[in-house]
Amino acid sequence: MTYASLNQPLRVGIVGSGFVAKLRAEIFSKDARTKLVAIAGTPEKAQAIAQEFDIPKVHQYWSELVVHPDVDLVVVCNVNRDHGAVVGQALRSGKHVIVEYPLAFNLAEAEELVNLAKQNNLLLHVEHIELLGGVHQLVMEHLSKLGTPFYARYSTKSPQRPVPDKWTYKPDLFGFPLTAAVSRLNRIIVLFGKVKSVSCQLHYSGDNLPHHFTSCVCNAQLQFENGVLADISYSKGENFWQPERIMELQGSQGALIFSADKGKLITADGEMELDAGTTRGLFKKDTENVLSHLFNGTPIYTNHESILHSLAVANAAEKAAATQQVIMI
């Protein structure tokens, strides 16, 4: 049953009051199929978003919003640590859910949430906009030209001086780096399938560890069941001096190499320049896909299988970093 056969418009509540919450509010406010009815977050920030987008109800606590009978869809974009709890309560209250990655910090909780959504015939959509971006779309288009892939690398570095006093630099709230940034794993797993083993190294810097870091570097090595090897690197903070976003895929017949949104396909026939365009507008595409699914039955662009496997790999990487051992999955 699509939502079009039920009451309209779809009534949306937002949990969170940061950048993504405001962006989601702006997108929903412009869609005639939806009505923003509530927001919960930091009081001053939530109130400001409510005033800008005419949201009638501001809750101090998310636990109030997710059980409210006037909410049909809960959008979860607060601190990572609380995602699992918010999603669980929303699903138990009969709400459809959109949540920013990660779905939860650990695989067992994530699996419970996916099963809960299925049992109650509710949408549980985990945002992974990297799959909607131009780089991923070009990789999908040209991957077959590489012959047999054997190596992948995805590396991001984000300098930040000075580091702000934000939850994204607090491990308890942010999570293990490759769990918080599980999209780095997911974009490779979507391409190459199941991972067999993981090793990982993690280093934090800062005067207030373990509560707050000023820099982190997290490097993982993945071995896929199909033989592909992958290096994943996530780094940010004061100890980095130049931003980087590199994706590299090597195969028996060619390579795809991207730096930011500019790339090239290299084969024996020569090089082809590739332009992935801007990353702007991806949250809008994500939201439109969800609404199209709810109203028209259009397939969601993500799938729970790769989302859960990516989280399993992130959990294995966390264990590998702690024990300095290779973890089999």
Rank of each mutant, 00 (worst) to 15 (best):
Q242T: 08
C216K: 00
C200Y: 05
P243C: 12
N186P: 01
Q221P: 04
Y154D: 03
C218G: 03
S215P: 06
K166L: 11
H212V: 15
Y151G: 01
I189S: 01
F174Q: 07
K166R: 08
C218F: 08
N239L: 13
A152Q: 03
L185R: 03
P177Y: 02
N226T: 15
E244Y: 11
G254E: 10
V228H: 04
A180N: 11
V190F: 09
F174P: 00
L185T: 05
H203Q: 15
F150I: 06
G237K: 02
I188N: 03
I257M: 12
M247F: 07
H203S: 10
Y154Q: 04
A152C: 14
A230Q: 06
K170S: 11
Y154S: 01
S235G: 06
V198Y: 05
S183F: 01
A180Y: 03
H212M: 15
K194I: 13
V190Q: 13
L202D: 03
Q221Y: 14
V195G: 00
V163M: 06
V163C: 06
W167A: 08
S197C: 05
Y204S: 04
P159M: 11
P164G: 02
D207S: 14
G147H: 13
T168R: 10
F176Q: 02
H212R: 15
F213M: 06
Y169E: 00
T148M: 10
E248S: 14
A230P: 09
G251R: 05
S215G: 12
S155I: 03
M247I: 10
V190N: 07
D231L: 02
F174V: 03
Q253M: 13
V198N: 04
P159W: 06
F150Q: 01
Y154I: 05
A255K: 11
V163W: 00
E238A: 15
P149D: 05
P149W: 04
M247S: 05
E248Q: 15
E248L: 14
K194H: 12
P243E: 15
N239M: 12
Q201M: 05
L256R: 01
G227A: 03
D172W: 00
S205M: 07
V190E: 12
F224P: 09
Q223Y: 08
Q201Y: 08
L191Q: 09
F240K: 00
K196A: 13
P210W: 06
R187S: 08
S205L: 12
D207H: 10
S183I: 00
F240I: 05
I246M: 10
K170Q: 15
E238R: 11
E225T: 13
G147K: 11
S155Q: 09
I232T: 03
N226H: 13
R184L: 12
G193Y: 02
P171S: 10
Y234C: 08
N219M: 09
L229S: 07
N208G: 01
Y234D: 11
S233E: 09
Q221D: 14
